[in-house]
Design a protein around this nucleic acid. Structure first.
Lengths: 237, 237
DNA sequence: TGGCGTATGATTGTCTGACAATTTAAGCAG
DNA sequence: CTGCTTAAATTGTCAGACAATCATACGCCA
């Protein structure tokens, strides 16, 4: 049975539905990096027409989730360790700035209330529950980025985060590492709630840098074992 | 006569050609912010099929150059002063980091050679020649961003720059302002060539911040005179 | 006159079939 | 084994049909 369900949507939302379905498939690992996305095959799982798929793939390509080569179609984007590091570099900058702004705007009103509501959910997570941590982690970072007040940051960081999510679901993050991450979250939350922009930015940048180190280890680990670096076209490995 | 020419392309590049044509039309002001992009009308100027246009518009929407509302089609994205300021905030961060990295990597080899080649072209521009300045400005910033070594920065900043370009062509930048901008470029170039990351980043951030102030003035000026803020649909004003 | 529901036309969105262009894989000759 | 030719598969573009939805104009009634 197909894990990719196909509920019907209102007129004018088919492309969006397909886009989200494929994106979720990429994040969850249903479609592996490098795997070709052949429209005819996709249409068997998700019953929409070719033009709908073409539009969805065009959008996925614009967001760098798939590569789209003329006359060769689409394939799930494969990131080199270098490109992954580049993403983290940008994330460190943007999330650091988001934390700074969040600390500046925290005030006593709705922003603080919203932040505290999030923090209540997140503060005491079980380091052994990996799935819960991933969810809490997204909520934590997402809330801070939204509270930054910058209208573009959320969508930009969402995009940047997707390749990292692809790893997270597969990677084995130890409870110790999760506990460490939670400690770092605590430091960030404290700085924001106390309205200290400099500390908030510094703590967030440190946090992202450490996450990069953890993930980079995973990257080099997955590179350690040999793999076909060749083109992803014609029946994937 | 149509200013949007339509040369034929190789098989598999129609969407890309349409995408670039429309994007250029947006940057140059051929399509004004808020203007609706009706496929039938577009197809009269640029002879491609509707599905081709739909894919191109889908990509333009993913890059935030047009808004795409279900059952209402596409319109050139209109930015509020606030959103414009948000873009500058991100640009300041990213370009500052690019300048830092460029200073770190400048060395004595190809990077330095490439930077100097650019600087030779740019260093002595006539402040009265607005078009030349815009071109030089793009070259200056583009080179630094590429020399940063981060693979994602160029495309990200390209996108962020487009709304600013849309203004630049219409706005009246005085020779005095251009001369000032050139002085700032000189400071940045010096810091990069001397391999001083801190100074390079600081100078670049200052430069972007000042550009923001200049542009923000234009924004509020164009907001000062009344205009229809209403929906852009059904024959544009 | 003015507000409100309805009819109408225009536009969008989706789907399907056709065809050419291109790539990939396989077969063959040397 | 190498290089060329052939064949199949896939992509890319186009044209047309149709339903869904929107925007406007109209008519109705107060």
């Amino acid at each position: 049975m197909s894990s990719l369900s196909n509920p019907r949507h209102r007129h004018g939302e088919a492309v969006d539905a397909v886009f989200r379905t494929i994106r979720q498939g990429i994040i969850s690992g249903r479609f592996a990096p490098g795997q070709r996305l052949v429209i005819r095959d996709l249409a068997e799982e998700i019953p929409y027409s070719r033009s709908t798929f073409r539009e969805a793939l065009r959008r996925l390509a614009a967001e760098r989730l798939v590569s789209l080569v003329p006359n060769r179609g689409a394939a799930v984007q494969r990131l080199s360790p270098r490109e992954m590091a580049d993403l983290f570099e940008i994330r460190e900058l943007l999330e650091g700035q988001a934390a700074r702004r969040a600390a500046e705007h925290i005030g006593q009103g709705t922003h603080r209330k919203r932040f505290l509501a999030m923090w209540q959910k997140v503060r005491r997570g079980d380091p052994a529950d990996r799935a819960a941590f991933i969810e809490h982690n997204q909520l934590f970072h997402g809330t801070i980025v939204e509270l930054s007040g910058n209208s573009r940051l959320p969508e930009m960081l969402d995009q940047l985060q997707i390749p990292i999510l692809m790893f997270q679901w597969r990677t084995l993050m130890t409870p110790q590492e999760i506990a460490l991450s939670q400690e770092e979250h605590k430091t960030i939350a404290k700085a924001i709630l106390e309205g200290r922009p400099d500390q908030a930015e510094a703590a967030m940048r440190r946090h992202v840098r450490r996450a990069k180190l953890r993930t980079s280890l995973d990257v080099s680990a997955s590179r350690a074992r040999p793999r076909k670096a060749a083109s992803p076209f014609r029946h994937s490995p």
